[in-house]
């Protein structure tokens, strides 16, 4: 299959998944009615109009942003670490974002929950994004400094999990001294949710994610030359330090902002780039970045549709669904080691 054809297919598929995602939920709304609401902002049933415009559309848009953001973030990390097992949640970067958010609460003096922070308004959401990105960047720098001494892919994964565990332990200590209701809310946050991002939150999240994606796309030439390793990249005129800073910034911003708003969402960032490379058979980041984003958004929309448990009144946490789908992919990657070696050294 040629690449333009594959891309048009992926775009069609993501639009299809987007519409299907809008029709599904505790109330079933026919696809034709969904289309009518989208194009004319009118409907026979005002309840449907409200559900689509205020709940499902923001949630579906969030799913698309999360899919793009986490996949591209994971892709950049895999190239930067030259390790196909690198990913935002696997290396503890999402835990770092959580720590950043927790730091605001500790700093504010009063113990508040993440949901309460979300209610702070637009300046509050910028603050969350900043702190979460900062937390991500700190953990990323730490793991990156350790990674320089490790050659084995799987060992780096273990180090990442350990760093994540330390970070979560720090949050847990703080949790230990907080109120039971807030504990409950924190636990809800760790399940991950696409539903909480509405109005200006969505505006902030999309601005930040698009900015991060632009940074990533602008780094695609640097990422390509880093495929051969740092020494070759330098010999081809790349200022490795600067390129690395931009890639780190993009990764932290994408992971940090998404984690702050939606909670830690696992396995999308590690599995999607790998699937994309296998599917397209290329290492060229100019193709991989948009393709990973499209596949990531399709995957998030599908996961969210499954999480809705169509026809029932209950909803599964999104992190549960992505983990159920993503973890087997990672196990398969580790078991078929030739797959690991084929991607990077």
């Amino acid at each position: 299959m040629t690449r333009p054809l594959l891309f048009s297919l992926l775009i069609l598929l993501s639009v299809g998944c987007f519409v299907v995602n809008l029709t599904l939920g505790s109330v079933s709304i026919p696809a034709r009615e969904v289309a009518r609401i989208l194009f004319t902002q009118q409907s026979e049933q005002t309840a449907w109009l409200f559900i689509i415009e205020k709940i499902r559309l923001p949630k579906a848009l969030t799913a698309v942003l999360v899919g793009w953001g986490l996949s591209v973030s994971g892709l950049q990390m895999q190239t930067l670490f030259r390790n196909p097992l690198a990913g935002p949640s696997e290396l503890g970067i999402t835990a770092g974002a959580g720590l950043g958010v927790a730091a605001i609460m500790l700093g504010s003096g009063s113990v508040t929950s993440l949901y309460a922070i979300r209610q702070l308004g637009i300046s509050g959401s910028w603050l969350i994004v900043f702190m979460a990105s900062l937390g991500s960047a700190m953990v990323l720098l730490l793991v990156l400094s350790i990674a320089g001494r490790i050659r084995d892919h799987v060992v780096l994964l273990i180090v990442g999990v350990m760093v994540g565990t330390i970070t979560i332990s720090i949050i847990s200590i703080w949790q230990y001294f907080s109120q039971p209701e807030q504990l409950q809310e924190y636990l809800l946050w760790t399940f991950g949710s696409l539903g909480g991002v509405v109005d200006y939150h969505l505006l902030v999240l999309s601005t930040v994610v698009i900015f991060g994606l632009i940074l990533a796309f602008a780094s695609s030439k640097a990422l390509n030359s880093l495929l051969l390793g740092e020494a070759y990249a330098r010999s081809m005129g790349l200022t490795v330090g600067r390129a690395r800073t931009i890639i780190l910034a993009s990764t932290s911003i994408l992971t940090g902002s998404i984690t702050a708003f939606c909670g830690p969402i696992g396995f999308v960032g590690i599995a999607v780039p790998h699937l994309t490379r296998s599917l397209l058979g290329t290492s060229n980041h100019r193709i991989l970045i948009p393709a990973s984003g499209l596949i990531g958004s399709i995957l998030m929309l599908v996961c969210d549709s499954i999480a809705q448990l169509p026809g029932t009144q209950s909803v599964l946490p999104i992190n549960v669904v992505t983990s159920l789908l993503g973890a087997p992919v990672v196990i398969w990657m580790i078991v078929s080691r030739h797959n690991l070696r084929a991607s990077f050294s």
């Binding site: 390509n224 495929l227 390793g229 081809m236 290492s283 084929a342």
Partner: peptide
């Protein structure tokens, strides 16, 4: 440069790899 270490970038074709040599001459998108 040509270095001792084996380069492993499994999905790169030979054409793409050699084209990476043009990196210093290409635009920001490569």
């Amino acid at each position: 440069l040509v270095l001792t270490e084996r380069v492993e970038a499994g999905h790169l074709t030979v054409g793409e790899l050699v084209a990476l040599g043009r990196t210093p001459y290409t635009n920001w998108l490569g």
